[in-house]
Design a binder for these strands. Structure first.
Lengths: 201, 201
DNA sequence: CAATTCCTTTGATAATTGTCAAAATCGCTT
DNA sequence: AAGCGATTTTGACAATTATCAAAGGAATTG
């Protein structure tokens, strides 16, 4: 019967739920429970999404745009991480510990994101063990990303690091200021500029 | 009744189970399930616990001793991580992905460790969701450790990194060769030697 | 479209750190 | 305690990268 079929069609998932499903498929009941603690937001360029010293209670899935995690070292702005479309961003140091964070998060473009209220997730963990697994796998993924970055810092030259970043986010230098990229790579803006001019030849 | 009391006494936990319990308390049934996939081993100094290119199927809790995770960069031995008593060590990049690992693991002292066979853990996850949580929290802890190391690399001088390492493992330079410590800090052995001689004055 | 501001590149110089070789020290073994 | 090998320190020099200042470009605004 037509209507029945239509009603049984799974609802179109939003990009955040699709992301979660790509890690661990979860049924509609679980999706609903997660949706209930998630908010979609459209925010303009340069929004300071999170501020150093605050306690972070959510993480964000980026549907569109680019976010920059940074911190101030001797008054200078130092980039710790870039996240772009299809990735997660949060002040993880605070989210996982409940302590105040070391990091700021800034949106470097007009951004669409889905914010999961992590402080409300405990009941979801209790009700649906699959979400516990989801959490475990998400952290695992992020651990491996950080491990990659650590390897790059420990074992590769500034130039190699820059080239690897270009593989991840090819248009990064069009999307954020060069100084932000330089501090992410752990070098001065002038040095990055020289690396770039070397690569052009 | 005497005997009843005695029989009800919880068995003395081994250090590995105590470590797990400190993260998430688990009952004896779960402890037993974990014990069934764990092996205690005493291994001599310089044992190569794991070899680059292999697929890692276990992680190890160190009851005694110190382990060094390292890799070869252009033929040179570079330390990626130290774990000592009370900590976990593994080739995490492989353990979590099933891909071959980038890292070697060497025991730098006579060591007592508990090896959990991670490839047998799936059934334990299925049977006891609490273990899934345990896994999530363990990875979270390790994520935060790696985040700390990353911060040190990105934001601190070689000297600051050395001082922070001394806080974590004060006797590290008595326990492993200085060159191993230097490569962990991302500097040459000569440079570390000069930092040390500077600190002595 | 000129003016202003912000961002990137270039140049000159200084500081940091690496490399190679040799000397000094440490820890065994005999 | 002397001798040996391994490890650490020191010295001289080279390479890398930072800093400061200025010039060149790009984008934005009146």
């Amino acid at each position: 019967m037509q209507f029945g079929l239509i009603f049984n069609c799974p609802k179109k998932m939003n990009p955040f739920l699709e992301y979660l499903n790509s890690i661990v498929p979860v049924n509609e009941e679980v999706q609903m429970a997660i949706s209930n603690i998630t908010v979609r937001r459209e925010l303009p360029e340069n929004t300071l999404l999170f501020k150093q010293g605050d306690i972070c209670k959510e993480f964000h899935y980026l549907e569109k745009g680019i976010a920059r995690v940074f911190y101030y070292k001797d008054g200078k702005d130092v980039t710790a991480w870039f996240s772009s479309e299809g990735q997660i961003v949060s002040a993880i140091d605070s989210l996982f510990t409940g302590q105040s964070s070391f990091y700021n998060i800034q949106l470097a473009e007009n951004t669409v994101l889905w914010s999961l209220q992590f402080d409300k997730i405990e009941t979801v963990f209790e009700a649906y063990p699959i979400v516990e697994r989801l959490g475990r796998l998400m952290i695992t993924q992020n651990y491996l990303l950080l491990d990659e970055r650590m390897k790059l810092f420990a074992f590769c030259s500034a130039e190699e690091r820059y080239e690897k970043l270009l593989v991840q986010i090819p248009d990064i230098t069009q999307r954020v200021k060069l100084g932000y990229v330089a501090s992410y790579l752990g070098i001065s803006q002038e040095h990055l500029s020289r690396i770039r001019s070397g690569l052009r030849k």
